[in-house]
Write a protein that binds this DNA or RNA. Structure first.
Lengths: 206, 206, 206, 206
DNA sequence: CATGAATGAGGCTTCATTCAT
DNA sequence: AATGAATGAAGCCTCATTCAT
């Protein structure tokens, strides 16, 4: 039940938090280790004692978050779907958005780092493809095919449905939190509308 | 008489092209001016003769592209819509995606720079909001309301429809070109599917 | 408990000394930070760890010297004058020149920097006016008026006397150390002659 | 009767004037050739067509001024002294200050450059010593000895008298125009006072 | 564990100077 | 004679990283 953070000392946590905030705000390349040390109230050398290099620090931030991002999906969703906890596909989507929301709000800076830095770091890209691209995708494919078999989704290549649904959600998240974070969003309604459109779009008409 | 690029010398073009490629590949902060000079086969000093600073170079790359990105929309679309060149809303969307495709393919690196760097540069953010956020949004609102009046779009707040459609398209572009550029995409079909879903989602059922 | 320099590390002192010598020899603008690093046998980066910028280095050299230049005057002279340690004005002048001589000889390069760079650096000008122009001038005015009251100085506007005396001394210093430093000066006699002329000039004839 | 400036083209004059102003304001090392070109409204290359290098430009500014500075002394003073135009030494000094005043006011920037840059340029130093240090000094020595022979100056080493007088005048000029140019000077009175003190100081009491 | 002084490579930018036009 | 684009060396400064304490 203990998780990997248990081993972290106070200073390590301070460093990780400072780095997360700064990387999110100014980008990885735009942030200096001395800024991080400053904000974490730690000596410059301390950073390198715990994280071999600046890149190592980035990975220490991003890698665990990728795991966390997909953890609930891996553990719960699949079972709930098979156990018929979600009778309709839209129930599944709604649940997925809802239970990720708190996480996303809390981990916004982490998400921004992930999105911004993936293109520039092969290691990250690899991890991302490995975890999200393959693992998650396989699970989602099972789920989609499950609902298709039940006649609740139109018969198209499952990948396409996944992409459309995922991208609709993802675009909302990016727009909401990265592109126009200062707009006056009514999140509940927006989510409802997205789901409505998706439902109209991918649920067969009887 | 042709266009504004006519005034650029060979070296200036070489610098802009090299910078565009490198910024797209390694990010603005991750690219050094000496790398740019190298790739452009130009002395480093030459860069600063033509562009006040590294930031100035970035703006010289990104600003014109924002204008170009929206130019066709400003000039043509509205008239075509009013002239009934597009009888149905989906015709309008399809046309919009189609005629931007060539541009997007050609200006992929530029788009990546735009997307990646906007969060870190207030000037860019401002320009973006000014051009895309205000100008374009107003036009799109007119178009949506035009089709709503014709009974071709469901009656929701027009902003929401715009956001859903735009984000679906935008998410496709991001996924296609930024997140998974190396996937094996069948662009025509993907676009068709997006349009299909959008049509199902936002066109009222008779 | 000794003095403020106690806090300086060896490298900081080496940097300050190298910079002082070079600034005096080639001027502030004519000296590069890499030259300073070289002469101080220190990495160039080390300079900027200790002094925010090249300008900061200049100020770290010049500011304390301004204080030191006037310190003895502030502490001792006034009391000695009032205590009648100097019965005649010329005694006062002689003492003032004498007790500054060691300091001047030792801090010649510093003085040269001060004189050469003041016109180009508003901060220096300000400090100079603040310390020398206001503080010292007020004290000198008191002293002059003190001797005028005793009938030992001609009755002219005290500012004028100060200026004439100070400029005679100052001109000697400039001539001696800046304009013709390589001439064969007999300092004792020169000082005696200056004092003689001043005495003849500003002491009333009985 | 034509002087060396006759050969100068408009552009050359513009360059010299711009350079003079800028060198005086920011120092030689602190002024860039492009700034000069800018201010002179001339292409950068043009400067180097006319003045081989930046240093050449400096010399073209300073050398002629040294000649001009001493010209009147060379031509007139000596004769006037011998012709008894100035019966007393103080008449000579007064005339010297007076007839240099217009020149100094007009050529203030040039003087500042001369004073500031001499220490950093061996060529200038050499010229200065050659012209002022030797030529002028020899003349002045003659003059002083002339008045000493007439019993109008105290019997001290003539060099000393020259230095004291010159430095008193020089210090006034420096103070007036370099150190405290913004003070509210009453030039006539100040000059009168200087002369008075000098007279008291170096004219024997009968 | 933690520090922070020290490093030297490298970043952005400016400079004096050249040369084809 | 005049231009100004082009250069590359050099300038100031920041960076990630190391190491003695």
């Amino acid at each position: 039940m203990t998780n990997s953070e248990t081993k972290l000392t106070k200073k390590q946590i301070a460093i990780l938090e400072a780095a997360t905030e700064l990387f999110a705000e100014k980008g990885y390349a735009g942030t200096s280790t001395s800024e991080i040390a400053n904000k974490a109230e730690v000596a410059e050398g301390t950073i390198f004692k715990h994280f071999k290099s600046k890149k190592g620090l980035l990975l220490s931030i991003v890698s665990p978050m990728m795991v966390k991002l997909i953890a609930p999906m891996v553990k719960n969703d699949m079972n709930k779907v098979l156990d018929q906890d979600f009778e309709h596909f839209q129930d599944f989507i709604r649940a997925m958005i809802e239970n990720r929301k708190a996480f996303i709000k809390k981990n916004l800076p982490l998400l921004r780092i992930l999105i911004q830095e993936i293109p520039f770091h092969p290691e990250l890209k690899e991890q991302f493809i490995e975890h999200i691209g393959k693992d998650i995708f396989a699970r989602l494919r099972n789920i989609v095919e499950h609902y298709q078999a039940k006649g609740q989704l139109i018969q198209t290549h499952s990948d396409t449905i996944i992409r459309i649904v995922a991208s609709s959600i993802f675009s909302y998240i990016i727009a909401r939190y990265v592109i126009v974070p200062d707009g006056d969003w009514n999140d509940e309604e927006e989510v409802e509308r997205i789901i409505q459109v998706l439902e109209n779009g991918i649920v067969p008409r009887e």
